[in-house]
Design a binder for these strands. Sequence first.
DNA 1: CCCCCCCC
Length: 518
Amino acid sequence: MAMNLTEGAIMKMCRGELKAEDEGVKPILQVIKVMEVVTKAQQQPSSSSSTERYWVVLSDGTHQQQGILATQKNYFVKDGKLQKGSIVRLTHFVCDEVQRRMIIIIVDLDLIIEKSDLIGEPVPVAKPVVVQSPAGQPGTGTGNPQSFPGSSPVGGLVNKPNAAGASMEPPRINQSYGSAYSRNSDSGRYAAPNVPAAYPKTESSAGYPGSVSLGGSYGEQSFRNPRSEALQPPLNTSAHQPQPVYQQPSSMYTNREPIARNEAPPRITPIAALNWTIKARVTAKGELKHYNNPRGDGKVFSFYLLDSDGGEIQVTCFNAVADQFFNQIEVGKVYLISKGSLRPAQKAYNHLPNDQEIFLESTSIVQPCFDDDSSIPQQQFHFRHISDIEGMDNNSITDIIGIVTFISPSASIMRKNGTETQRRILYLKDMSGRSVELTLWGNFCNAEGQSLQNMYDSGLFPVLAVKTGRVNDFNGKSLGTISTSQLFIEPNYPEAHSLRRWFDEEGRNIPSVSISIH
DNA sequence: CCCCCCCC
């Protein structure tokens, strides 16, 4: 099949001219090698399979370059989809120079073709492209072994001999703040190739790629940006630029991805530009909930936003502010939102992969966009196979798509606190050969639940996509809805169509193994 | 400041 790779993309990445997808390019590249990386942490019992890492070598047909797959995308490899020959579009990536090597950190990607013949004869980009420190400026770490305990494979990559980037050379410290700064100002970019990662000494070994070994650790502050911000020139040298400054992506996946947190350069926002505005679609909306605790009564509601870059963030408002905005917020609509406060995500109530959360105040501005922005998807899914749920922790949040093979009538359930709610049980089955029990709670029972029941009673086995389902440990593993879950019946997605085809052709007659005990 | 995801 003829497929155009993005010509010159690798060279640009290596030169630092294409550092991340927000520069407008989502390069189409071919995977020419996939390697599993064995990390130190994998040998520790406390850290499970989440520390598996995959290195890939990417090609634009002319040049090749190593990259690393964010762990939340490991399933691309595990499912056998991403392989040698795959053609991919990098939809979210960060290029960074680490240990004197340029590395492409693949945070998200589209798989365009699972396997294709190798295109061209790509060669590694010639070394001198990466600007070297001048002689006599070896960096404070060089030659000081104590600063680099991780320069042995311990704590680092113990990967296969030819794995790109395996060398654990110490990083250089930028030789000249002034020159780096002015150079970057000239280029208008926030990080040019001669701005090496300025890791604090103690973290230089645990930095990249040693930090790989620490994957899976959740939200540890000590990993927050090992770079010195002082070395990062501003993103916008023109402070008068009217557009909102885009500063969110570096933290987008930080809670799940130490590697991304380490490597995504901070977007420096001019003080004069602190009045951000986001344009995003509401993808989920919780109930307006009243609560009563020792501190008094109150009410709260939350909703999720998704923007055209694939960023997602939760917005929460309390009390009078909740009343102010609750009726205005509609799922599916696009809004301009500004003057909210950005604070650390309340993980107990926030299930999005973002360390930040927006809290609206009475002075916040929520403005509907009447021209629907088609560049913002209606929903963003990260579907996992049902078989994957077996390995997920209690309370994990996941997106699942499957065929409804059974649904129970709605029943009234008394909560432990004495209040009542509705419940339905259904079973989902997918191509992984597994099935799982899904509990619908509250309104889901009468809305989507009733439609599903009607279809089921008519002898149909509808496709159901679950966005933001919650994994629980009851009876093996099962799933439940939470207030911000979304259900989609017979959705018009490729995944739904292939499931339908699979089920009609063979899946219907293949007994599946339930991961829930009935 | 402020919600704790429901049941067998």
